[in-house]
């Protein structure tokens, strides 16, 4: 795997060590008054950006932290200090 990711605790490591946790969609919405459609969108709909997106990763074969980082989905490379599209 060409991808490397920078764990906030362990530093830059091989992509094999991490598990993808999806796009960063913000915290869970409040439940009261939430329509089923809005909930379903939050859970299942993705932006699928062709470019830089902010996303969650889990350092599974490492320290076990969940963190966000920016990745260019077209080159599958982590981008540092990127402007998220």
């Amino acid at each position: 795997m060409a991808l490397t990711l920078t764990c906030p605790i362990c530093g830059e490591r091989n992509g094999y060590e991490f598990k993808y946790g999806g796009e960063d969609k913000g915290p869970r919405p409040e439940e009261s008054g939430l329509s089923p459609e809005a909930w379903c969108d939050y859970v299942h709909m993705n932006n699928c950006v062709a470019g830089v997106q902010k996303e969650w990763w889990y350092h599974r074969d490492g320290c076990g932290v969940w963190f966000t980082t920016e990745r260019d989905t077209t080159s599958n490379l982590e981008i540092h200090n990127a402007e998220v599209s």
Partner: peptide
């Protein structure tokens, strides 16, 4: 399990 619980509390 650890991954799951930490994932679902990751924002707070």
């Amino acid at each position: 399990t650890v991954e799951w619980i930490r994932y679902h509390t990751r924002y707070e």
